[in-house]
Design a protein around this nucleic acid. Structure first.
Lengths: 341, 341
DNA sequence: CACTAAACTTTACACCCGTAAATTTTCTGT
DNA sequence: ACAGAAAATTTACGGGTGTAAAGTTTAGTG
């Protein structure tokens, strides 16, 4: 590595003895220049530390290599895991993923979308806040940027990829009814369409099986799900307000909080003899297998959702026609039987 | 909102009746133009949807408003939480945080640093991988970009902010020795300097108190800590290989896995009568309070670390002289007594 | 109303790279 | 060795904004 700092492509052209337009071609696609030229450039790159200025590049390219990823709450292990998978797929495809979190707030989601749009990304993968999203803002964004919506099905963009909540909730309700007392449904005020869909499906599934649906709704409006599960769970147990000894939670985080509540109240959770409660969740969060007892739940197919989302986005970016209809891809949940129910 | 799309600042200058240099000043700092002018600009902004092109802005500014945040593993709840706090502080200060994760891999860390550097950020807050970081790459980065290192004290950059592991481990070792059988130390191959420091401090603390230190090291080299805690915990319990009934884990994630192992082996964890094991952790991870039983641990001061890191970075960015010496800020841990030990 | 400082406008150039067009060099196959 | 193709070079312009310099308008003061 030589002392001299290269400040722009012009200088690098001088020291490498390659013309600037050829260098520009090379940096855009190394395969587009002759092998001998490529070797000369690359040996120069080893001597002089130079990288093209990203801002100047993107200013002129209609199509940047940026892909925006927006999630409602990055500290939620579900989204953390989805982002991890998606990022990897983007990187491996030569894109540059940029992650934004709405931190659960409408205003920050709008900000993130605005910032993202001004980055002129090739495309975006977004999981909207849902209920508290500013619909028109999100819609306008999707009209400007090729976008795949995942997880939370806000009716915008050209495609949606997510979990088939009707199938997955049906699966676990069937299981719970088949193996013990029919479940009640434990939920908090829904933050997105998934939560509503899950509750409605629970009700329908119970009715289909000839049982009386019983929904337990507790307060709490932020993203601190385990806390809500714990606090409200403690209260419900104290007040003996749970209408069934089998509790299906709207999601795993709530279930983990509820399991903690049961533990602290001295109630044994599980399906064996001597157990007072059965608790089941939904999602198969990364932490679900480490609760005590491990959580029976329905696994969302994280990898399938991530892969299909990215796949469709790449098609959109490549200008492939996906037809007039808005595409919807639902992946089936998979029953994960552990000790809690 | 009017139909016509504004394509650049020139056009916006025409429609708003304000000259382009004044607009440029306004977008850089709204307070730098006269109130009447500001009002005219802002009323025009309501009519015409215009935002300056980020790429063109940053191409000319030596100092961008971008702040890079790099963590070793974004799905780790500790880092997810740190990123959440840091992002908020940056946004509130008018900066534009960009988050990168090394996904636990040296190569991706190097990539992220390279990408980040080419963004010409005003500054960066990085938690290096540590042991598997490419020291020279990280060092070179910190020479180019004002950087605050947090959590993992790689000896680079102008400042480090993190937890005082000597104090915090001393605290919990004291507590455990005072209230029951002296602890053994449960660790996996250290991924960063913190893990080493914690083990060494454990050994010293035990010797200081006149006890025989006993370190249980298990294999496992990735970031799947709970899994390691569970699998190796099951093995150790089966083989009766734990040298003490009190186990201090290198971090909370390991402890949560170990608690799950104890539960699955039918061992009661806690400090009451009838308990077979005491298990303690370190960090006060967001999930520590929801384990069964809730985890006794030492809380890192997340907020203090985030705030001090950002504060120092802003000073660095403002060109304040922090002196020749590399600054090191250690925050004290706080004992969090719950039911597990 | 005159004076002054602050704020604004006009003009012009810079930043770094993409890219098109015309020209020259190099490679490929016979 | 030679024609034709492929690839490189030279030249030139454009993109959207920052910013400096010089000139003009505005606001504030007495």
């Amino acid at each position: 590595m030589v002392e001299k700092r290269i400040r722009n492509m012009e200088e690098f052209a001088t020291v490498s003895g390659i013309s600037r337009p050829t260098l520009s071609k090379y940096f855009h696609d190394p395969g587009s220049v002759r092998a001998t030229t490529r070797e000369r450039i690359e040996s120069a790159l080893e001597q002089y530390d130079y990288r093209p200025n990203i801002f100047a590049i993107n200013q002129n390219r209609k199509l940047t290599k940026t892909i925006g990823i927006l999630v409602p709450y990055l500290s939620d292990p579900f989204f953390a895991e989805m982002v991890r998978l998606i990022e990897r797929l983007c990187i491996d495809a030569g894109y540059w993923p940029v992650v934004f979190s709405a931190h659960g707030e409408t205003e920050l989601e709008n900000n993130a979308l605005a910032t993202l749009e001004s980055l002129r990304p090739a495309g975006a993968l977004i999981a909207p806040l849902g209920r508290s999203s500013d619909f028109e803002v999100v819609e306008r964004f999707t009209e400007e940027v090729p976008t795949v919506v995942f997880d939370s099905n806000l009716e915008v963009g050209k495609a949606f990829v997510g979990n088939d909540n009707v199938q997955s909730i049906g699966l676990i309700v069937d299981y719970l009814c088949r193996t013990g007392e029919p479940p009640c449904f434990f939920e908090m005020p829904p933050v997105n369409p998934n939560a509503n869909r899950r509750r409605d499906t629970y009700v329908q599934s119970m009715e289909r099986l000839g049982h009386q649906p019983q929904v337990v709704s507790v307060r709490g409006g932020d993203w601190d799900f385990e806390r809500i599960g714990l606090d409200e769970g403690m209260r419900l147990i104290s007040e003996r307000a749970l209408p069934s000894d089998t509790i299906l939670c709207s999601n795993d985080r709530l279930a983990i909080g509820l399991i903690a509540a049961a533990y602290q109240k001295g109630l044994r959770v599980g399906h064996g003899p001597g157990c007072a409660l059965r608790i089941a969740g939904h999602d198969d969060h990364p932490w679900a297998q480490f609760s005590c007892p491990p959580l029976t739940t329905v696994a969302q197919d994280y990898r399938a959702v991530a892969e299909r989302s990215v796949e469709i986005l790449f098609k959109l970016i490549d200008g492939e026609d996906l037809g007039e209809e808005r595409q919807m891809h639902y992946f089936q949940g998979r029953l994960v039987l552990r000790a809690s129910a």
